[in-house]
Amino acid sequence: MYKNFEVIESSLEKIKEDIKNFYDPSKYHFITINAIDLGNGKVNIKWFFAKYEVMDKPIAFSVDATYEDTIPSIVDIIPSAWLSEAELADLFGLNIEGAKKGLFLEPDSPPAPLRRS
């Protein structure tokens, strides 16, 4: 299933702690957060990391959630994640703690365009 990156399964409750234990700013490069709509109101969210300077597989934390869940924000661990979180909140309509909506979409555009319904 996962062809060229490693996946660490986690859960919504644990994810923040997992990333906190894992992330070392001088060693790992935070890439982005991505969500995949699995259908039926379910969504898979992945946090991607890669090592600096070493040819190695990227690492992803994976969490399955639903659209109703509140997803913890990691801005206090990785300050640059606010943009990725804002994007997910806009394009998928996810409830992410403290994420600002309306950064990527205009007020008159359809809500959560990447969701399949």
Binding site: H29, F30, I31, E53, M55, S80
Partner: peptide, 24 residues
């Protein structure tokens, strides 16, 4: 490193990161 800059911006600051060397 804190804000995860990428590309020439990061390399100008002394962060050794280049996807050409990190991805095969």
């Amino acid at each position: 490193e804190k804000y995860n800059a990428a590309g020439p911006v990061a390399r100008a600051s002394g962060v050794r990161t280049d996807a050409r060397a990190e991805f095969d």
